[in-house]
Simulated assay, not measured.
Amino acid sequence: MPDAALDLTLSAPVHATDAAIGRVENVIIDPHQGKATHLVVREDALPNTLRLVPEKYIASAGPDGVRLNISQQRAAACKPYIQEDYYSPAFFLSLAKAEDVRLPMAPSSWTVEHPTTPAGSVALAGHEPVRATDGKVGRVDGVLTERHTGRVTHLLLRTGHLWGTREVQVPAGLVSGYEDGDVLLSATKAEIGALPDVHAG
């Protein structure tokens, strides 16, 4: 891996300047800019808490995980990735009144959770199916980006089966799109199979 690259492997440990804080849950990619814009970090201290960490806070990323250039306290202040919207009984009563509908019983409150993935972006969670022009070729393991720009240079792709897996770096130029949870490539299975295993030799 080039010195100027960041290896954003999914599930990799994440360290602030003063402590380990969690693991990479998602890498957020803006396909239009071709950049990784955020990491979603699952906190160790509060395992159900996910933080949206901007790419500018990544100091380095490699075999030992991701290192941020901010403190644990500053990382904990990053925006939550899961947003909760609260709907009170009064909200449902006002809807019913506006539609002139009689409710069969008194409504209760609802809390709806949803991710705050920026509009037009894709949240890679790991193991998304990757499809070549002639069929499925593997699953996503992570993303390589340029250190200073955030530009995605390669996707890390795991191919093969449990008894014979390989990890290859697929150039970002071969990614033709993201659709229905799949990553689409403009190359054939044979072309991807000819890429070298990053762990060989």
Rank of each mutant, 00 (worst) to 15 (best):
R131E: 12
D141T: 05
P104S: 03
F92E: 11
D44N: 10
G138N: 03
E55W: 15
H127T: 12
F92P: 00
A59Q: 11
E84V: 15
S109G: 08
V112N: 07
R51K: 15
K56N: 10
L50I: 08
Q72L: 09
K97A: 13
Q72H: 08
H38C: 03
V137W: 01
L95V: 12
V130Q: 01
P47I: 08
L46I: 12
A45M: 03
P89K: 09
G65F: 04
V122P: 12
L103I: 07
A90S: 13
I82M: 13
P63T: 10
L103N: 02
H127Q: 14
V40C: 10
A96Q: 02
T117G: 03
S71V: 05
P104R: 03
G62R: 01
P80C: 05
D85S: 14
V143G: 02
R74V: 07
D44E: 06
G62I: 04
V66S: 00
V130Y: 00
E43G: 11
D64Q: 13
A106Q: 14
G120E: 06
A45Q: 10
G138C: 02
V53C: 08
L93I: 10
H38Y: 11
P118K: 00
A75V: 13
V130E: 05
A61Q: 01
A75I: 08
P104N: 01
G126M: 04
P118E: 04
R74N: 14
D134I: 11
K79V: 11
D141F: 06
G135Y: 09
Y86G: 04
N69M: 03
S121K: 06
Y81F: 15
F92N: 07
S88M: 09
G120Y: 00
Y87Q: 14
S109V: 01
D100Y: 04
S71Q: 04
P129Q: 04
D44M: 03
T37C: 04
A119R: 11
Y87F: 15
N69A: 09
A125D: 05
L95F: 06
L46M: 07
Q83I: 10
V143L: 02
T37I: 01
A106E: 14
E43H: 05
E43W: 01
P129H: 01
E99S: 10
T116F: 04
N48M: 14
A106D: 15
P107Q: 05
P89F: 00
Q83A: 15
S88Y: 06
E113V: 10
S94E: 14
A90K: 12
P89T: 06
K97F: 05
A106L: 12
L93C: 04
F92T: 04
S94A: 13
L93E: 14
T37E: 03
V143Q: 02
A77T: 04
S109Y: 10
L95D: 06
I82Y: 06
D44Y: 01
A45G: 13
D141K: 14
R74Q: 15
S88W: 05
G62A: 10
D134C: 07
G138I: 03
D141H: 11
R131C: 13
E99K: 12
V112G: 06
P47L: 07
